[in-house]
Design a protein around this nucleic acid. Structure first.
Length: 176
DNA sequence: GATAAGATGTTA
DNA sequence: AACATCTTATCA
C-alpha cells in the first residue's frame, strides 16, 4: 500500500476533502497499528469565515499556513481533539477535517481522536511519512455518485457552505 | 487581566 | 434540551 504523498495534499481543499473519502487512515502508537476507511470529511479554506485561519495567522492557526501534508490537531470545547490534514500550497491556508472512519467509536471528530489516541503532540506531524505514526493510504476507488455533499456540522459561521462530504449509505457516518 | 465563544459528545 | 469543561482570540 502506498502512502499518500505531498502532491496529494497540495491541491484545492475541496478536491482533497472528496479524494480522502475511501482512503485508509493509519495510526501507529507503540506496537499496534490502527486502520480505518475515511467515510466523512469537511473542508475549511483561508477565505472561509468558519476556518480558524480566516482572521489571520495566530499561534493556533499558524499550522494551517505551513506545508501541505501535515496534521492540524486542536482542542474543541476544552474536551475533544479534532484531526485535520493541511492542504493547498505552502503559504495558502486550508485543511480537511476528518469527521469519521469505519471503526468502532470513530463516528465523530472527537470520538475518532479519543479512539486513535490523537492529541496535540501530533499537531504538525508529517502524515506523508510513516515515522510520524500517522498516515493515509489509497484504498477504495469511489465514483462521484458514491459521494454525498451537504452543509457542515456544528458551526455557526458560513453554515450554508456545502462543504461536508460522506460516502453514500455508509453506516459509520456521524449523525446518521 | 477578563470575557465570550467554540469544527463535540453524553445524558435526560 | 442541558451540560461538562478549558483553550483561544479579542479586548481593555
Amino acid at each position: 500500500m502506498s502512502v499518500l504523498g505531498r502532491d496529494f495534499y497540495a491541491r484545492d481543499t475541496l478536491e482533497v476533502a472528496r479524494s480522502l473519502l475511501g482512503c485508509k487512515l493509519r495510526r501507529k502508537n507503540g506496537g499496534e497499528i490502527f486502520s480505518g476507511i475515511i467515510v466523512e470529511t469537511e473542508a475549511y479554506t483561508g477565505d472561509d469565515p468558519a476556518c480558524h485561519a480566516y482572521r489571520g495567522c495566530t499561534p493556533r492557526s499558524s499550522t494551517l499556513f505551513k506545508q501541505p501534508g501535515i496534521a492540524y490537531v486542536y482542542l474543541v470545547y476544552g474536551m475533544y481533539y479534532c484531526l485535520n490534514f493541511v492542504t493547498e500550497k505552502q503559504g495558502a491556508a486550508g485543511a480537511v477535517l476528518i469527521r469519521a472512519v469505519e471503526a468502532k467509536n470513530a463516528n465523530g471528530p472527537g470520538k475518532l481522536c479519543r479512539e486513535l489516541e490523537i492529541d496535540k503532540t501530533l499537531n504538525e506531524a508529517d502524515v506523508t511519512d510513516k515515522k510520524s505514526g500517522l498516515w493515509v493510504e489509497k484504498e477504495l476507488s469511489l465514483t462521484p455518485g458514491d459521494i454525498v455533499t451537504t452543509t457542515r456540522i456544528g458551526i455557526k459561521k458560513a453554515a450554508d457552505y456545502p462543504w461536508r462530504f460522506y460516502i453514500r449509505g455508509n453506516a459509520f457516518v456521524s449523525r446518521a
